[in-house]
Amino acid sequence: IGLGDIYQTKTTTQLEAMKAKLQKEFKNPKHTFKIHSAFNILVDEILETIENEKADLVVMGTQGASGAKELLLGSNTVHVLQKAGCPVLVIPPKFKYEKPKEILFPTDYEIDYTGQRFRMLLEIAQTHISRIEVLHVSMGYDLTDLQLYHKSKLDHLLDKTAHLFHEVPNQEIITAINNFQSKKPMNLLVMVKNKHTFMERLFIEPVIKKIGFHITIPFMVIP
Rank of each mutant, 00 (worst) to 15 (best):
L164R: 15
T144M: 01
Q126N: 11
L158H: 00
P169K: 12
L135I: 08
L122D: 04
G115N: 12
E110N: 15
P106C: 02
Q171E: 04
T161C: 06
M139V: 12
K101T: 12
K160I: 03
E133N: 13
I132H: 03
L104E: 08
M120N: 09
L157E: 04
T144Y: 08
L157S: 05
L148C: 09
L157T: 02
Q147S: 06
S152G: 13
T144D: 02
K151M: 07
F105G: 07
K101V: 03
H150F: 02
I111W: 13
V168D: 03
D145R: 09
I173Q: 12
I129K: 15
Q126I: 00
D145S: 09
I103Y: 11
R119F: 10
K101W: 12
V137Y: 01
L143N: 02
I174M: 09
E172V: 02
Q116I: 03
K151E: 05
M120A: 13
L158T: 00
Q171R: 14
P169M: 05
T107K: 08
F118C: 07
M120T: 15
L164V: 14
H136E: 10
K151I: 03
E172L: 10
E167K: 13
H163N: 07
T127I: 09
I111R: 14
K101Q: 13
L157M: 10
H128C: 07
P100R: 03
S138I: 05
L143K: 03
G140S: 08
E102D: 11
L104V: 02
T127E: 13
S130L: 04
H150S: 06
L143S: 02
L143E: 04
Q147H: 01
Q171V: 07
A162L: 11
Q171A: 09
E102I: 10
L148Q: 14
H136Q: 10
L164A: 15
D142S: 11
K153C: 00
Y141E: 14
H156S: 12
V137E: 01
V134E: 03
Q147R: 05
K101G: 15
L164M: 13
L148E: 14
T161H: 08
K99H: 11
S138W: 02
Q171C: 06
I129F: 11
L121T: 04
Y141T: 15
R119Y: 12
I103E: 09
D142M: 00
D112G: 00
E133A: 11
Y109M: 07
P100N: 10
T127W: 04
L148I: 09
H150L: 08
N170S: 12
H163V: 02
E110Y: 01
V137N: 00
E133G: 06
K151C: 03
T161P: 07
Y141I: 13
D155K: 15
F165S: 07
R131P: 01
V168A: 05
H156M: 07
Y113R: 05
L143R: 06
K99W: 02
I111V: 10
D108E: 10
T144G: 06
Q171K: 12
E167H: 13
E167I: 12
V168N: 03
A162G: 03
E133D: 14
M139N: 12
K160C: 01
I173F: 05
R117M: 10
P106G: 01
M120E: 12
T114G: 00
I124P: 11
H156R: 13
